[in-house]
């Protein structure tokens, strides 16, 4: 049985390091002049692909009322158990209940989107907001007003055109 050598045998010219070094330097200088992938964050924002699951919002209907009917489908579906709500009698004639309180603990939320899938009213949705860090833990437990404000910020799909001050995030 003869041994078949299939390994790479460098030629004498290769062993002088020159071809390797010159080829490598050609590659690096090409990269030096090529497009940079850094996104300078506060000035530039990462363009969010469609279907991105970011911060949660509560939708409003055409009359500006909260769409949610407090059916608790979302909090049942939620694997992280981060949604809690308190239902009350709706002040409007077209529905029986509405949420008096609606709280999402964004510290627990895993942004899985199960609430969005469970919702029969399309009242809860995940948005393209990905920069919702906060200085305190309390700031990340979002109440109804905060979640409705997310809707105002993202309803027109122009969240990333807004300034930092305007979004208040």
């Amino acid at each position: 049985m003869g041994v078949k050598n299939v390994g790479y045998r460098p030629k004498r010219w290769d062993r002088s390091y020159f071809p390797g070094i010159l080829a490598g330097m050609w590659i690096t200088i090409k990269h030096f002049f090529s497009k940079k992938y850094t996104v300078s964050y506060p000035e530039e924002r990462w363009p969010v692909p469609p279907g991105h699951r970011g911060a949660i919002r509560l939708n409003k209907d055409e009359q500006g009322r909260i769409k949610c009917v407090a059916c608790e489908m979302c909090s049942t579906a939620c694997p992280a158990k981060c949604i809690s709500m308190k239902a009350g009698v709706a002040p409007w004639p077209d529905r029986e209940k509405y949420p008096v309180e609606f709280t999402i603990d964004m510290l627990r939320c895993i942004l899985c989107g199960m609430c969005e899938e469970a919702c029969p009213e399309e009242a809860i949705q995940l948005t393209e907001i990905y920069d919702f860090s906060a200085y305190t833990r309390e700031d990340l437990i979002w109440d109804k007003e905060r979640l409705l404000r997310n809707y105002d910020l993202t309803a027109d799909g122009k969240y990333f055109d807004r300034s930092k001050e305007e979004t208040g995030l």
Binding site: T28, I29, H31, F32, S34, K36, Y37, T38, S40
Partner: peptide, 13 residues
């Protein structure tokens, strides 16, 4: 910055 540019980054700016 040169190292960053070679690695397709921007570097400290």
């Amino acid at each position: 910055r040169v190292s960053a540019f070679i690695q397709d980054r921007l570097g400290p700016n």
